[in-house]
Design a protein around this nucleic acid. Structure first.
Lengths: 200, 200
DNA sequence: TAGCACATGTAATAAGTTACATGATTTT
DNA sequence: AAAATCATGTAACTTATTACATGTGCTA
């Protein structure tokens, strides 16, 4: 008797449990109902600095959530135009709260820049050095964006009890971007040391 | 005439260009040839602290690389046992060097812990607070691991010209883990402030 | 009235993980 | 001789991105 007698249950597997698009949707729907299109905008504007969702994920996930009874879609008409707004159900709130209690799944790290640095000796050091400068500039820009978000949040939601949580997510990005800045500086210096001296 | 007349060319799309498993393989094969099984071990031991590859990716990617002429697989026998070792070709080295010059593809950020913090008000604050403590402890452990790797590399490859590059990848992890430690401390304090005061 | 942004989706495909399958070798 | 480990792979599935398709309403 082989082990293939036991059928594979995809829904119970840990691979399936790593789908978190559903929880972004549920979380945003606790704040206000909205259409798929509106959700996409709201994801970009709220959690966009640390979480992105693509279009092709949103629609199927909403359909699944509705089939499972975690959201309810209501069709209505806006002029000649068909609209579909979603709202969270009690079951949806329960599912969200349950997920919030769980340990976050370990996310496999994958850093392409580090991969290039690791194999730097197999390529053009100067070209890679420029990529490090790019990364440093990008970290600067990200810091600016995050400080802007922080100021906006403080100005707009000054007394909202959720503000401290939202600011923490921004703070994470700021600390990370500062660490990246520092690393880029160190790396650029190290690359200058690593290449053969050739003055003009 | 519709636009679907133009067929979709997957190999030229940017989605296909994001496959970097091939470059990990090529990079490691510049150091020494080896079997799929051995490559898996070497990935875990060398770039494992910032790049993971699963088994199911390695075999099909090796097959594709061979079909494209970037690696060459040589079958041989070790006693009764069939082995297949791979070595990089000149075309493979060229492909690797070309990739090293390119800008790293922007990797979509997705941080599940931040997602939970963002929606913290919809769940149990104390439970989430424990998750933050977990994350802080994990950052401590990661720092220990990385310092161990750093010491090992210095002791083992003291004069290797590639050592500075390898150390930089470790340094990145250390700075990131330190930033994470600091954030966890700040977040835990903020969560204590956010929950209603109840002394025993 | 042509063009563009809004809005709602579907289709095709790539990327990646986990479980399953199998046989040889080493260890107990 | 049984069990664990080494070694090589395949199958099934989920997740995710990108391109395509389609229609409405606004604006120059």
């Amino acid at each position: 008797m082989t082990r293939s007698d036991a059928p594979h249950d995809p829904a119970a597997s840990s691979a399936a449990r790593r789908n978190r698009t559903r929880f972004v949707i549920l979380g945003l729907l606790t704040q206000a109902p909205g259409s798929a299109y509106a959700l996409r905008q709201r994801i970009a504007e709220s959690v966009g600095h640390f979480w992105q969702e693509s279009y092709g994920q949103l629609f199927p996930t909403l359909a699944r959530l509705e089939a499972e009874g975690l959201v309810r879609g209501v069709e209505h008409h806006d002029g000649n135009r068909r609209r579909r707004d979603y709202q969270i159900t009690d079951a949806g709130r329960t599912a969200l709260a349950g997920w919030l209690k769980e340990l976050p799944a370990p996310q496999p790290e994958r850093n392409e820049l580090l991969l290039k640095v690791f194999f730097a000796s197999e390529g053009d050091i100067d070209a890679l050095s420029r990529r490090l400068i790019d990364a440093g500039l990008e970290a600067d820009a990200q810091l600016d964006r995050l400080r802007g978000i922080e100021a906006f949040l403080r100005a707009t939601y000054g007394s909202d009890p959720r503000l401290p949580f939202w600011l923490l997510t921004v703070r994470y990005g700021i600390l990370g971007a500062e660490a990246l800045q520092q690393w880029c500086e160190e790396a650029i210096r190290a690359f200058e040391g690593a290449r053969p001296d050739r003055s003009p």
